[in-house]
């Protein structure tokens, strides 16, 4: 066993991760702000007006990164959950639990902005488009995960049960995605995509990428804050929590 390995496991204990997370949070908030300002500036002032969709298309600078994040967070959540099951580390389950609400929020933002985008594009708030439908199902999966964890009182059991659900979900996500896509093409559903249009300018892509980074940093910052709260809640009666200055007051 080499030293690096031991160090990793040291941070896997809630006690040593709690102060580390506390130190990292301001940095991630700072990065969120920087990427947010740059990304929004590009999306509103630099990116050209779309030839077909006019100004309304600019909502994709929120919509697309939120969709990416909602899928990505589910993968990360499942990875933490799997790690927790395999290595039986307490922190992994807490991370999965902390990520779920942010993932659900991202899925919700994606659906909401999708509806806003749909109104001028398709003339209706909701279209059973393959991507929107998959996003809706992903939102359901997040809600199921959160509900299951909330319903189980014993934290360790909640972590493990949630982990199995997340792993089953992650196997199913691609199956669901392709089945919905197939269902959609079979029924000739409407699908509009700025990404595929030739007018997609380089600056648009940059704006989207920077906004994605902003969302990414935000998700990490919020997940770390939530993980700190979960650690405090679960370890209330340990000595080290009682010694913390913020708890003592």
């Amino acid at each position: 066993m080499n030293n690096r390995f031991i160090n990793w496991f040291r941070f896997a204990s809630p006690q040593s991760f709690y102060p580390l997370a506390g130190k990292m949070i301001p940095w991630f908030w700072g990065l969120t702000a920087i990427f947010g300002v740059v990304g929004l500036w590009i999306s509103f002032f630099v990116a050209p007006t779309d030839a077909v969709q006019g100004e309304g298309y600019r909502i994709i600078f929120i919509h697309v990164p939120a969709s990416w994040m909602s899928m990505f967070i589910y993968l990360v959540m499942a990875a933490w959950a799997g790690l927790g099951l395999a290595l039986n580390t307490r922190l992994s389950g807490m991370m999965a639990q902390a990520l779920a609400p942010t993932g659900a929020l991202m899925a919700f933002i994606s659906l909401w902005t999708g509806a806003f985008w749909g109104k001028p594009m398709w003339g209706t708030w909701w279209v059973w488009d393959a991507r929107l439908t998959s996003e809706l199902i992903l939102f359901f999966l997040y809600i199921g995960f959160i509900a299951l964890q909330a319903a189980i009182d014993d934290a360790r059991r909640a972590d493990k049960a949630g982990a199995i659900l997340a792993l089953v979900g992650v196997v199913n996500v691609p199956i669901i995605y392709f089945s919905v896509k197939w269902w959609n093409t079979l029924h000739q559903g409407a699908s509009v995509s700025v990404m595929k249009s030739p007018s997609m300018a380089q600056t648009m892509l940059w704006g989207m990428l920077i906004m994605a980074l902003c969302f990414w940093m935000y998700s990490i910052a919020v997940a770390l804050m939530r993980v700190r709260a979960i650690i405090l809640e679960r370890e209330t009666h340990t000595e080290w929590v009682k010694e913390l200055p913020e708890v003592k007051q």
Partner: peptide
């Protein structure tokens, strides 16, 4: 199995399982 002995197990079960049934429904 996941909702065994859990509060409100029946409703929770449908919340967990129905989204996973979607591919079966579609095909």
């Amino acid at each position: 199995a996941l909702t065994l002995g859990v509060r409100g197990g029946g409703v929770l079960l449908s919340l967990l399982v129905l989204p996973l049934y979607i591919p079966a429904l579609i095909f």
